[in-house]
């Protein structure tokens, strides 16, 4: 039920990822003051955007779960958050590499986007201990959904708050996401963003399908064991 449309999306992912790599390395111009290291931007920023959207999407799916009572929405929300956390790890690592290369420090506290991302990431890391320390599956789904909604709403608030904490409104050094990018860079960036989004959706569907398959397998195994026990019991009574 999760695998509908998986093949075209997977093919599109491969094509767009290949195109994105090609554009990054052969089409996009080298940055004037940062040079080659600036190319990490094409991985880092799309990854961050997709991860944040994934967190918020997880919250929206959680709302659907609580409204409909359909547990499959909780599964969708869980997998979306799970993948976003994996992407988030990548964001923090690539962000640190980029910061080291262009500013000379692994971590900068006066970069509000970086700091907000870390806080959001730390919050979502608690999703796992919370989810897996509740045994009853129904309750697990409900509690996880409540967490996903509260945390999803927290994402935008946190970004506003951290930006407010910036006492000095220093000029944004890297406002490539704004309008100052040259056209070739912007095209490359957009292709990368689409590729990353498609990758996310593909992995999401793949994970959901695999989870469903293993759940079904478990159920069938349980039935098989029950059947075997019944047979043993009848043989014993005979």
């Amino acid at each position: 039920m999760y695998s509908r449309g998986f093949r075209p999306i997977a093919i599109a992912t491969v094509l767009f990822t290949a195109l994105a790599f090609g554009l990054v390395f052969f089409y996009a111009p080298l940055d004037g003051d940062q040079g080659f290291i600036q190319k990490i931007f094409y991985v880092h920023v799309p990854m961050a955007i997709v991860a944040l959207c994934g967190f918020v999407a997880g919250g929206i799916m959680a709302i659907k779960h609580l409204r409909s009572g359909d547990r499959s929405w909780d599964m969708r929300s869980y997998v979306a958050i799970h993948l976003s956390i994996i992407l988030g790890t990548g964001v923090l690592i690539t962000g640190a590499i980029w910061a080291k290369a262009s500013w000379g420090h692994w971590w900068l506290w006066d970069e509000p986007v970086l700091v907000s991302f870390l806080i959001v990431f730390l919050l979502y890391c608690v999703y796992y201990p919370l989810r897996f320390s509740i045994e009853d599956p129904d309750r697990q789904a409900r509690y996880s959904s409540v967490f996903a909604i509260a945390a999803g709403a927290f994402v935008p608030i946190n970004f506003v708050a951290v930006r407010l904490a910036e006492q000095i409104t220093h000029p944004r050094v890297l406002s490539q996401t704004g309008g100052s990018m040259p056209g070739e860079m912007r095209l490359t960036f957009l292709v990368c963003l689409v590729a990353m989004t498609l990758l996310f959706v593909t992995l999401w569907k793949l994970e959901l399908t695999s989870k469903q398959a293993s759940m079904q397998l478990k159920r069938l195994r349980g039935r098989l064991e029950l059947r075997a026990e019944e047979r043993a019991a009848t043989q014993a009574s005979r």
Binding site: I119, L123, V126, P129, F147, A150, F154, V162
Partner: peptide
């Protein structure tokens, strides 16, 4: 604490 402290970061900032 793991849940409350990150959620309270905006409060702390303000």
């Amino acid at each position: 604490p793991l849940l409350l402290l990150p959620l309270a970061v905006p409060l702390l900032i303000g």
